[in-house]
Each structure stands twice: as structure tokens, then as C-alpha cells.
Design a binder for these strands. Structure first.
Lengths: 294, 294
DNA sequence: CATCCTGAGTAAGTTTTTCTAATGCATTTC
DNA sequence: GAAATGCATTAGAAAAACTTACTCAGGATG
């Protein structure tokens, strides 16, 4: 039972680009060829692999095969490297939380020979992506290794509860208390974002439900704080300058929340991803808060 | 850069069977097809892959590609399994020391869906096979993990220095001493076999060089001891019955040498080999000497 | 409501690939 | 030194994969 590489490439391209036509352009063939390749593959597998929609989405079997296609191209890239050949760069899917992406992660990708497809999701959920095999590696908040994955501690991303001075004057003139915190508008990244309520609970000991803005963009999150729309937990590195020049102030002096992060790599591709893993760890050591070394 | 699966299969079959003709029979094609497939692959790689000899042997590049072919078929088998398909069984190469093969190992292979190609080598050298990627897993004496491999302790194989009663009467009537040990003929499995001299050094504190028979066969080794040809370190399980009925006796009562063994699996195929790993460990727990649990 | 546009699927014909069959040419074997 | 073995090569046949051209469905447009 062999899987035809060009058929797998077609499946990959369709899912990556969302349509048969775009996939055909990417593969330098006619859309008809792509259609025939996928049909042949679906016939062989005896089940549909792609849900024809805009954009196209994989069925469970399609997802599994797409993963195989990715694994295969990583393995082939490793062979090519071992034999000193040049080859088309392999693609690798990586799950990453938005704040890591906005702050420290990108530079660790530079210099790699791979092509990246980043999936942005909450750090608490990226482990699921890994577990399903939808990505080959992930930055995750989960410390226990996902089955079949190697886990590397990266350090912690430090968040600081921040707001504009005007916002502070309006909502917290009476101090940061249980009462003021439950009335002042809070910024939330999305429905999964628990950082603000975590910090409130950690600080006040109560689970409050303040009025909430939802802004699923790291940059918008900072801008909203600057504009006095609300307060929110912002990555220290993103607001450092604003804190220096007084455009933003911490809700409480010295207040912070550290979120430990981990790099998990599917072990069956750990060898081809070894340089990436090294690069990510190096970058994290420089950019994240490291636990005290005793 | 795709590798054609049928070309890889040809390479695999050639190396497995040692000739193009046998490979052709195995693949149900004409020898010409095999020749053309390999030629196409060699052209693509820009280097010879097979040394045409009897039997055919791989060049370094050929070895690396053959490994890729094996990895690929394991990955494909895993995909097929995940999708509930039937598929041709994948082949897996395993390095194993002769005494493990003769005593406890075989039953752990039963019930697997894989096809095995065992490479018999000394337990101290099987790690090299792994490191070069020539095998996907190995029973080895090496405790430190080979790069890219997961290591599982299996317990120890217990050896007992044994000889026939007649041999004892002839050579050790004066007791087992430095003098008698340096004169009595010793059995050796092969040039790599250090068990006998290890035990002598462990027992007497001296590195002696007694006259040596070389018998590279586990069964012949026991037979030679029974025949009074020499004494040798025999796996306890192989000589238990002979010790019971007096055909063999230990050189020194209660003397033994435990050789700890480890199961090392290349991590990139650890998932498809998971059932095998479980089976080997289960069997080893039952058949090998386990370290005291405190 | 008819029309246009986009994107997937299908059919037919052509190109490319890959096989078999036949043959050649070494090397080994008796 | 004839027969046998085994790989390489070639030509032609068979199979596979592609392109072109067309059809069909669904959504946007006038």
C-alpha cells in the first residue's frame, strides 16, 4: 500500500490554499489534474478526503493523510540533507499563542530552511492541535508531554495589568479594590482568554465578572489600553516603552502574572525539526522570564 | 523533491534479497523493471546506490535511502491503521544479540503485524547499527540512549560459567584458581565475545589468556560444553536442565554474570513500533533477571 | 428573472512514464 | 569451453497522468 506523493501533494495544496484552482496554480498543473489526483486518492482510500466548500476543509481521513504528507516531506527533507542534496523546503505546521507570536516567537523562525504554517490559538488549546496531529510542534501552556511528543520548558511570558492614566483616574481613583475592579471595563482577547479574571482572582481572591470588551488582536489590545477603553493583561515586552513614558501605568505597582510556556514537538519529526527546536529554545531563553536558577 | 515509492521498494527488495532477479520475483515484475527503477533512482540521486556484487550491497547513500524506505513503510502502515484500512505489513529491521535471540526474544515477536529482519550482532555493537540508522530498534548492552532513540531497561541476561563433570575433573581437580583457569580451554562465541575473560577478571582479579575455542553458535556453544570441549559462559535458561541432571556443572557454585540489556527504538518510528516495544518489555520482564525492587 | 462568473467535475485525446520481451555481455560453474 | 547466472540495454506495448474542452452547479449581478 503506497501513497502516491503527487496525490498527497495535491491534497496538501488544496487544504493549504482552500481551493482546487489555487492548488493547481501552486503545483503548476491544470485544475483538472488536481481534481483527478484527489479523486484517484479518494477512490483508493474509499472515502472522501476534502469537503468541497469555500474554503475547502478536510474530512478526518483527509486530515490524517495531510499529516502524513507533512511528515513525509519532513522525512524527505532530512534524507536530502543527509545526502547533501538540494531540495524544495519542507512545510511545517506550528501552533502558537497570539501573544508569543506578537512578542518573541518570530525571530526564532528566521534562518530556518523550512516553510512555516502557523496556527494561532490559545496556549491552553494548542496541545489539542498537537494531539490530533494537525501540527508538528506547538508553543503550549501544557507542561505534561502530549503522547508522542517531546516537551521543552521555555520560560514564562510575563503579563502586566495595564491601563492609561486617564482610565486609572476615572475608574480607580478609589484604589484597585474588589469594588472598583468589578466595575471598570476589562479587555479580553477572546472567549478563551482567562488572564484578566485569573489575575483578579489571584489579587482579590474573588471571581468577579466586570464589563468586558473583546478584542482578538494583540496590537488592538495594547491600542485599546492606550485609548483608555479598558485595562488588560499585556505582555511586558509590548508595553515596556509605554510604561516608561507614562502612556500606560500598571494597575498595581509591581503587579505581574507569569505564564510558563513549553515547546512540544512530535517525536517522529524531532530529527528534522532539531534546528528549529534549538532556535526556539535559544530565543526563548533570551526573551522569556526564566525561573530562578538556584 | 519526491522519492518514487516503487523505486524505493525496488532498492529495498534488492538489498533484502541480494540480487535484482530475486527482488523482481518479490515485486512481481521483470528484472528489467527493477533494473530500470534503480537506474532511475540512481540518476535522480546522482550517485550509485547499490554495489553490484553477489550479494548486492548498499553504498552509503543506498543505505540511507533504504532506511528512508523502511521509515516510510512504517509511517504508511500507521496511517493505514489509523484509518482502519488493511495494508501490506511493514518490514522492520532489528538488531539483536545471539544469546537473546536463542533464549527469550522470539516470543515477543509473535502476534505482531510486522515483518521482521533480524540482524544478529554482539550486544555491545548493536548500538552502532542503530546509530547509523541501519535498524529501527535494537537489543543492546548500551544504557545511554543513542541519539534520536528512546531507551527502555529490559533486565539482565544471567550467564553461568559451566563445564561438563569430566572437563571439571580433568582441568579443575585442583580447584578453580588463577593457574587452572589459565590452562583450561575456554569457549568463545566470537572475537567480540568478552564474557569469559570478564568473568575470569571479575573472579580472579587477573586478565588471563587461556587457550580458546571459537564457536559462533549459541547451540554449538552448549553442545561443546556438554562434550567437554571447554568451559564457557552460558545463558542460565539454556543450561538449567543440564545443571539439574548433572550433565553440566558450574565452575564455582553460585557463580554468575548478569548482563543488563536495553531496548532502544528510533524515536521517529516509536509510534508504529509501540505494540512491539510493549511486547518486548513484557516478555523481558518475564524472562530476564530484574534488578531488586526496593 | 435571465445572465454572468467562478470553480469543480468529466470526457477525449495526447504526452509521458513504465512496463515486458528480446537481446547482449560479462562472470561464474561444471 | 559450453552452460548458467545475473545485470544492462533497447524497442515497442501498455498504462498512467496530463491538457484541452466542455458541462454543471451555485452565487452574484444587472
Amino acid at each position: 500500500m503506497h501513497f502516491d506523493p503527487s496525490q498527497l501533494a495535491a491534497l496538501s495544496a488544496i487544504l493549504r490554499h482552500g481551493s482546487f484552482e489555487a492548488a493547481a496554480r501552486d503545483l503548476n498543473v491544470t485544475p483538472s489534474a488536481v481534481s483527478q489526483r484527489l479523486k484517484a486518492l479518494e477512490n483508493r482510500m474509499g472515502t472522501p478526503l476534502v469537503i468541497r466548500d469555500t474554503p475547502c476543509r478536510p474530512t478526518p481521513a483527509g486530515q490524517r493523510l495531510a499529516r502524513h504528507a507533512q511528515d513525509l516531506s519532513l522525512l524527505e527533507a532530512q534524507v536530502a540533507k543527509d545526502l547533501g542534496m538540494t531540495s524544495a523546503p519542507a512545510r511545517v505546521r506550528v501552533a502558537i499563542n497570539a501573544d508569543s507570536l506578537a512578542t518573541w516567537f518570530i525571530p526564532s523562525l528566521a534562518g530556518s530552511e523550512l516553510l512555516f504554517e502557523l496556527e494561532v490559538d490559545d496556549q491552553d488549546h494548542s496541545a489539542d492541535w498537537l494531539h490530533q496531529g494537525a501540527v508538528a510542534a506547538a508553543v503550549t501552556a501544557r507542561e505534561t508531554p502530549v503522547r508522542g511528543c517531546a516537551c521543552h520548558a521555555l520560560g514564562a511570558l510575563r503579563y502586566i495589568p495595564t491601563a492609561s492614566p486617564a482610565f486609572m483616574a476615572r475608574w480607580f481613583s478609589a484604589g484597585v479594590t474588589r469594588e472598583t475592579l468589578s466595575r471598570a471595563p476589562v479587555l479580553t482577547f477572546n472567549a478563551k482568554d482567562q488572564l484578566q479574571v485569573s489575575w483578579i482572582r489571584q489579587t482579590t481572591g474573588h471571581a468577579l465578572r466586570p464589563p468586558t470588551h473583546v478584542l482578538p488582536s494583540t496590537q488592538a489590545f495594547v491600542d485599546a489600553a492606550l485609548a483608555g477603553l479598558g485595562w488588560g493583561m499585556n505582555p511586558q515586552v509590548l508595553v515596556e516603552a509605554h510604561l516608561q513614558n507614562g502612556d500606560l501605568v500598571p494597575l498595581i505597582d509591581g503587579a505581574k502574572l507569569d505564564t510558563p510556556l513549553f515547546w512540544q514537538v512530535a517525536r517522529h519529526v524531532s530529527e528534522p525539526l532539531r534546528p528549529l527546536t534549538a532556535s526556539v529554545r535559544r530565543r526563548a531563553r533570551a526573551a522569556l522570564v526564566q525561573p530562578d536558577q538556584h
